[in-house]
C-alpha cells in the first residue's frame, strides 16, 4: 500500500469537487452542531433536575404589610406568634423533612443577586420582600397535598411549589432540545445524500483511472480507499467545525444563562458531546461513501 499515492488521489478528488466538498462539510458541521446542542440541552436538563430535586420543594410565603394576596388583605404583617405556631404546624406534618426560615434580609439578598431589572432593583426595599418558610419534603410527590393544607393557615400569603416553576422551564428546554434534534436528523439525511452525490461525481470524474486500475489488477481496497477517504476527510473537517460551533454555543449561550441555572454544564460534558458528534459525523460520511461506491464503482 502506497500511502502517498492514495493521498495524492484523495487530494485530487477533493479539489475537483470543491463545491460539493464544501457543501458536505457545511452540512455535516451544522447537522452535528445541532445534534450536539440537543445533547447539551439534554444533559443540562438532567443536571438541573438532579440539582433542584435536592433543593427546596415548597416555599410558604408569609404576609407582609400591604401584601396584595387575598389571605393577607384586611390584616397586617404576620406576627411573631403566628410564625411560631406555623413553624410547629409544618414541622408536625409527617411528610416534612426539614424547614428553613428565610427572613426579609436574606430574601432581599437573593432577589438582588438574581434580578437583572435595574429599575425594579432600585425601587425595591428589604421591607417589601416576604418572609418565607422553605420546606423540604421526604417525598416530592406529596408537594400538592402539603401545599393545600398549609394554604389556609393564618399569616400565610401564598404557597409555591418550586417544581411547578421549574417544570415550565424544563418544558421549554425539552421543546428546544426536540427541535434541535429534529433539525439535526434532517441535516444528517441531507449530509448522507450529499456525500452520496459527491462520491458519485467523483467516481464519474475518475472512471478512466478506476477502469485502468481494475484492468491492471489493483485490489478493491486500493480502488475504493481514495473515495472513502474523501468522505472521511470531509466528515472530519465538518466535525471539527461543529466542535468549534459547540464551544461557541457553550461559551456564549450556556455560560450566559448559567446564573439562572445554578447547575453549570461542565467542560467535560461538552468535550464528550463534541467527541460523540464528531464520531457520528465521520461514521455517517464513511458509510455513505461506502454504500454509494458499491452502486457506482463496479469492481
Amino acid at each position: 500500500m502506497r500511502a502517498n499515492f492514495i493521498f495524492s488521489e484523495v487530494w485530487i478528488g477533493l479539489r475537483r469537487n470543491l463545491t460539493m466538498t464544501i457543501a458536505v462539510i457545511v452540512t455535516v458541521a451544522v447537522g452535528m452542531a445541532l445534534l450536539g446542542v440537543g445533547l447539551m440541552i439534554n444533559s443540562q436538563v438532567s443536571k438541573l433536575t438532579g440539582f433542584w430535586s435536592d433543593k427546596v420543594e415548597l416555599s410558604v410565603y408569609l404576609c407582609t404589610k400591604g401584601s396584595p394576596f387575598e389571605p393577607c388583605k384586611n390584616r397586617g404583617a404576620v406576627t411573631q406568634e403566628e410564625k411560631g405556631t406555623l413553624e410547629q404546624t409544618i414541622k408536625a406534618l409527617p411528610d416534612v423533612e426539614q424547614v428553613k426560615f428565610e427572613n426579609q434580609a436574606q430574601a432581599f439578598k437573593n432577589f438582588q443577586s438574581t434580578e437583572s431589572n435595574t429599575l425594579l432593583l432600585s425601587v425595591t426595599k428589604p421591607e417589601d420582600m416576604p418572609e418565607s418558610f422553605r420546606v423540604k419534603l421526604k417525598d416530592p410527590e406529596k408537594a400538592t397535598a402539603v401545599a393545600s393544607s398549609l394554604k389556609g393557615q393564618p399569616g400565610v400569603s401564598n404557597v409555591v411549589n418550586e417544581r411547578d416553576l421549574l417544570q415550565s422551564v424544563f418544558g421549554f428546554m425539552d421543546t428546544l432540545r426536540n427541535v434541535a434534534l429534529g433539525i439535526a436528523i434532517l441535516m444528517v439525511i441531507a449530509a448522507t445524500l450529499l456525500i452520496g452525490n459527491t462520491v458519485r461525481l467523483s467516481a464519474y470524474n475518475r472512471r478512466r483511472e478506476t477502469g485502468i486500475m481494475r484492468l491492471v489488477g489493483a485490489s478493491n481496497i486500493y480502488i475504493q480507499l481514495p473515495f472513502v477517504l474523501e468522505g472521511l476527510i470531509a466528515g472530519l473537517i465538518g466535525g471539527v467545525l461543529s466542535g468549534v460551533i459547540l464551544i461557541v454555543v457553550k461559551v456564549f449561550i450556556f455560560e450566559s444563562i448559567q446564573t439562572y441555572m445554578a447547575a453549570p454544564l461542565g467542560w467535560d460534558t461538552v468535550a464528550g458531546v463534541i467527541t460523540g458528534t464528531m464520531a457520528v459525523g465521520v461514521l455517517i460520511c464513511v458509510l455513505a461513501s461506502f454504500v454509494t461506491l458499491r452502486r457506482y464503482l463496479r469492481v
Binding site: 502506497r2 499515492f5 485502468i212 491492471v216 489493483a218 486500493y222
Partner: peptide, 8 residues
C-alpha cells in the same frame, strides 16, 4: 508507472 503504483 501507474500500473505498478496501483498494485502497490
Amino acid at each position: 508507472a501507474f500500473a505498478l503504483e496501483v498494485i502497490g
